[in-house]
């Protein structure tokens, strides 16, 4: 079986698109497109909202409301929105499937970005915030020069788990006839072409791992070394050997890629 998967993946005709079939590159592009659109929209909504809620401590019910979305099964949500919206778009394009899928992806991405951003800002040490105001910073200066940089590790981990969730759910969107790497899984299943199905799974897993790795690298170079604790050993004052993993801070809400 593994040999079959390998030969399916190494067949160049599976990578290029033809008039009848979209190849791996094409589906990868579609997958990334759907995911990127959803993540950008979610970020544009959740990041400013989260910073505002965390900074002002107002309207915290929004966070609870967003988290309640996670209790819904993502497949059910996807199917429900597709059957509601798709009939309005019968025609040549797949807009009727793209719109409900994007809505679901955005809905699933918002809670982790939002709650991590709020938690990140709220977790900033009280003494640090006090000092910032005491030095004469204005509210926005405290938010953008002090609270946001300190919240970055949590914001990043929220964005990373949102990304994983979106990649995973975008795969399932193939089940409601949309393109993306999930196509190979569901087509392979329908045609009992198991090498194709398993290759699809492999591609999706690889995509998720690579994206997470890239985001981890980005995080490494964006977050201050003073916060990550990635300082040269010779510089250390001799305590705190290993900085706590910021991800464990919001463990109970953060680690579920598909806990939608």
């Amino acid at each position: 079986m593994i040999g079959d998967v390998f030969s399916w993946l190494s067949d160049p005709t599976h990578w290029q698109s033809t008039n009848f079939d979209t190849g791996i590159w094409g589906q990868l592009g579609a997958h990334l497109r759907y995911s990127a659109i959803a993540l950008v929209i979610a970020l544009v909504i959740a990041l400013p909202l989260g910073l505002w809620i965390g900074h002002t401590n107002k309207a915290t019910w929004i966070v609870s409301a967003a988290n309640a979305i996670r209790a819904l099964p993502s497949v059910g949500l996807l199917v429900l929105l597709v059957v509601i919206i798709a009939p309005h778009f019968y025609g040549r394009t797949d807009t009727g499937y793209v719109i409900p899928t994007e809505i679901v992806l955005v809905l699933l991405a918002i809670p982790s970005i939002l709650s991590n951003t709020v938690a990140g800002v709220q977790n900033v040490d009280r003494a640090v915030r006090d000092a910032a105001y005491g030095m004469g910073m204005t509210g926005p200066q405290v938010l953008f020069r002090v609270e946001t940089p300190n919240a970055l590790p949590l914001i990043f981990s929220g964005f990373r788990s949102a990304t994983l969730q979106v990649i995973a759910t975008a795969t399932i969107a193939s089940y409601v006839t949309l393109g993306g790497l999930g196509r190979f899984i569901y087509d392979g299943l329908a045609q009992q072409d198991y090498p194709q199905m398993i290759s699809g799974g492999l591609l999706v897993a690889a995509l998720a791992l690579i994206l997470d790795l890239l985001l981890a690298l980005l995080q490494r170079y964006t977050v201050s070394r003073g916060i990550t604790g990635r300082t040269r050993r010779s510089d250390r004052a001799g305590h705190s050997d290993e900085a706590p993993d910021p991800r464990s801070a919001v463990l109970t809400e953060d680690l579920a890629p598909e806990a939608a």
């Binding site: 040490d125 910032a132 030095m135 002090v146 916060i227």
Partner: peptide, 16 residues
């Protein structure tokens, strides 16, 4: 506040 120096108990240095 910018004209007044302010020192607090736990220093409150900016970790980043």
């Amino acid at each position: 506040r910018r004209q007044i120096g302010y020192v607090i108990q736990h220093a409150g240095l900016f970790p980043h």
